[in-house]
Write a protein that binds this DNA or RNA. Structure first.
Lengths: 346, 346
DNA sequence: TTGTAGGCGTTATCAT
DNA sequence: ATGATAACGCCTACAA
């Protein structure tokens, strides 16, 4: 029984003097098959070391039970949380998750999309890269009726389910909070505005300023890629130009940390002299000194929701789908970096 | 040309009055095909919206160009770094990466392994879960000659390439450093010792103590799952039992942070009263107060190495392979939590 | 409840 | 340089 070649359903069939279809049915728990034969077949399959060739089955059925996930970067807390959530649901529903990172590179993103399509994934979950401004590579999926769900970095122009964060609201509340703490000249270090999330955060900021009757100095708004070095550059520019800033709202925690470190070096005290806030609630933001006030995004939950919507769409391909945009609530985490005159609660 | 059904190489062949094999060859850049026909075929394929059915090709060739990755948890900086490194190499070599998390659950790990096998992944990269003490689910791959590479949490009993960290050496140097800082009664909060990495860290600790002529009190060694709550529990027990501890070596940064927070609450000063060290260099450890001294593991690089070894093995299945264990050097990161009488360099 | 037969799209072998 | 043909392992009408 230790054959070299792989055991197939035909081998089992031959051994039992039955037909391959019966074997196939039994192994797939088709109710037509009697309990007796099913058991018999199972037993022999086991003994013969049978391993279903999912590849052949997929080819035949044109389904792969695979979900493709495209993210800018795997190694980033928010994204890995989302992936973890996706995997959680996908696994429980019998799906495999295939992940690629675009590294915020448009070319790579395009190639990944093509590869996933050619691999006939059953559906795709995407968060687009910073450089992505055209979308043919994603429209491909829609044309061929392959379900597509966006999370976080969604695309307005494409009609699909979207799981996003209330960036506008989050930014609005951040700004309002800063204003309530007495800030008047608030700077904003944002991300590239071709990404809706950063545009929304900026708009939330502007709206809150307006509603409070505060003027926004355009020079106090800087956009960059929000990496560590960008943060340092931005804060340096900001401080060179204008020394009267009393608060900075950074579009992510990395930049907020860069700002804090840089300002500390200048002898500027946080929060006493300048208030700082971030966005995303990276794990480190809780434990810095001062701890960084930020906005919590429910990454794991978003991943779960995205996977649920996607799988539902996969299972109901026929139905006309009313696409929904799930706006996940954000939570304002007020910590030390944004509170004046408060006991250190840490 | 807007057919409902997918365009196949046969459609292209029919359209051009040539054979499907020629089309197949042309599309695969087989040198036998003349430049002229190749171009012609490419053009038509494009116009007809042809998408290669990788599924069919995989089925035929028995290769999937897919690497399976099994990790305890995706959403953990070290692991997501490794995954990122794997993806980096895999992508550049034309492989797709399929990832699943075991959540440190043995049952899930087993099921994942089966699924990956049935999906005929070309190779697997694994870091086993905390509960994993038997290995049939992994031996399956070896029996069927499917390359398997371990990283970090490897298995002694299985003969395969392994990318591990110098846990023993790292722990030894941690301990030596603590001793040099004047510590004499050093506690160790370690992980489950069925995992070699934690056993090694413990052994490194013990060896360094011995070499320094220090006695180790067994009551000062606690093993648990190293999650946040476990850390708090462990440090509480430690402090209840014995108040004369002057240093704690934690087997990960999460536990080190738990310890620091708990000790701070007791009014104990770090590093003045008790030195604390962690392991792994989680991003947060750099920015806590005090910053946490720890051991850096090159996650991304490990992922790259693992993928390289695996792919090499996939491409050389015939050859007898001399399995190697790559022990990646660790870097001791001395920060504030372990240095007495030093200027705050932060 | 089980069997028969055909085909999914591609590649590989052999022939021309 | 190109064509004809078979085969990969499985599923699914349809038949019995």
């Amino acid at each position: 029984m230790t054959k070299q070649a792989e055991t197939t359903i035909h081998d089992i069939a031959k051994y039992l003097n039955i037909s391959a279809s019966t074997v196939s049915r039994a192994l797939n728990d088709n109710p037509l098959i009697s309990e007796a034969t099913r058991k018999k077949i199972r037993k022999v399959a086991n003994e013969m070391g049978y391993r279903p060739n999912t590849l052949a089955a997929n080819f035949r059925t044109k389904r792969t039970n695979t979900i493709g996930v495209i993210v800018p970067l795997i190694n980033r807390h928010f994204f890995s949380s989302v992936i973890s959530g996706i995997e959680d649901i996908a696994y429980s529903q019998g799906y495999t998750v295939s992940i690629s990172q675009s590294n915020d590179n448009f070319q790579k993103e395009t190639k990944i999309a093509k590869t996933m399509f050619n691999n006939r994934v059953d559906g795709v979950i995407v968060s687009i890269g910073m450089e992505t401004k055209s979308f043919e590579h994603l429209e491909l999926f829609l044309e061929r009726k392959i379900p597509l769900v966006f999370f976080d970095r969604a695309v307005d122009e494409i009609n699909a389910h979207k799981i996003v964060v209330d960036d506008f609201g989050g930014a609005y509340r951040v700004t309002k909070h800063l204003i309530e703490q007495g800030a008047k000249k608030i700077a904003h270090i944002g991300g590239p505005t071709n990404l809706k999330i950063y545009e929304d955060r900026k708009q939330g900021f502007l709206e809150a300023m307006k509603d409070a009757g505060l003027k926004t100095d355009k020079k106090l708004i800087i956009h960059n890629s929000l990496r560590h070095d960008d943060g340092v550059d931005a804060i340096r520019k900001l401080m060179d130009k204008n020394k009267k800033i009393d608060a900075i709202f950074c579009a992510n925690d990395t930049t907020a940390l860069s700002a804090i470190v840089y300002l500390k070096e200048l002898g500027i005290k946080i929060p006493e002299d300048i208030l700082v806030m971030g966005f995303s609630n990276e794990p480190f933001s809780r434990v810095t000194t001062p701890s960084i006030s930020t906005v919590k995004q429910p990454g794991f939950l978003m991943g779960q929701k995205a996977a649920e919507l996607l799988i539902h769409q996969i299972n109901n391909k026929k139905a006309d789908i009313k696409y929904q945009t799930l706006v996940m609530p954000t939570e304002l985490l007020i910590r030390e970096s944004s509170q004046k005159n408060v006991l250190n609660l840490h």
